[in-house]
């Protein structure tokens, strides 16, 4: 019998975590931002592969573009972290490993977001 019912129903006994709605809301709010920013970026930079480096930097260096790009990377890394967290919690056992992975995901997302925004600032600063 053991193993079939997997640890019985812990969920019925544990107190609710009370923070889950923020996670869900964050996922939706970042999704709503990306709903607009992703098509904008695809149509603006879809052909970036064929652009000269200076033209590309010129484009990114414009204040509105830089702002949009920074916003995109912030929202995207946040959205990716929340999404990965859900996937990890769905599939990874034991829960201690899943908790460690979630921490790792968050750390990686912060590093990614800082790197991206840093690069945008670097490009803008280089234009002066």
């Amino acid at each position: 019998m053991d193993g079939v019912n997997g640890g019985e129903d812990v969920g019925a006994r544990l107190a609710p975590s009370r923070a889950a709605v923020s996670h869900w809301l964050g996922q939706r709010l970042s999704a709503a931002l990306l709903l607009v920013l992703v098509p904008w970026l695809m149509f603006s930079l879809g052909s970036a592969g064929g652009m000269e480096l200076d033209d590309l930097r010129q484009w990114i260096g414009r204040p509105s573009h830089a702002l949009g790009l920074a916003l995109f990377f912030l929202a995207a890394w946040y959205h990716a972290a929340l999404g990965l967290e859900v996937v990890v919690q769905d599939y990874v056992r034991p829960e201690s490993l899943s908790a460690v992975l979630v921490l790792g995901v968050r750390l990686a997302a912060v590093v990614g977001a800082v790197a991206a925004v840093g690069a945008v600032i670097w490009i803008v600063a280089g234009m002066q």
């Binding site: 990377f73 995207a76 890394w77 990716a80 996937v87 990614g112 790197a115 690069a119 945008v120 670097w122």
Partner: peptide, 25 residues
């Protein structure tokens, strides 16, 4: 597709760094 774009985002951030650094474009 979401998992794939976690990798995509990593790639995009890397490309942005290449553009910012001005090397390897």
């Amino acid at each position: 597709t979401g998992l794939l774009w976690c990798l995509g985002l990593l790639g995009a951030t890397g490309l942005l760094w290449v553009v910012a650094a001005g090397q390897g474009w």
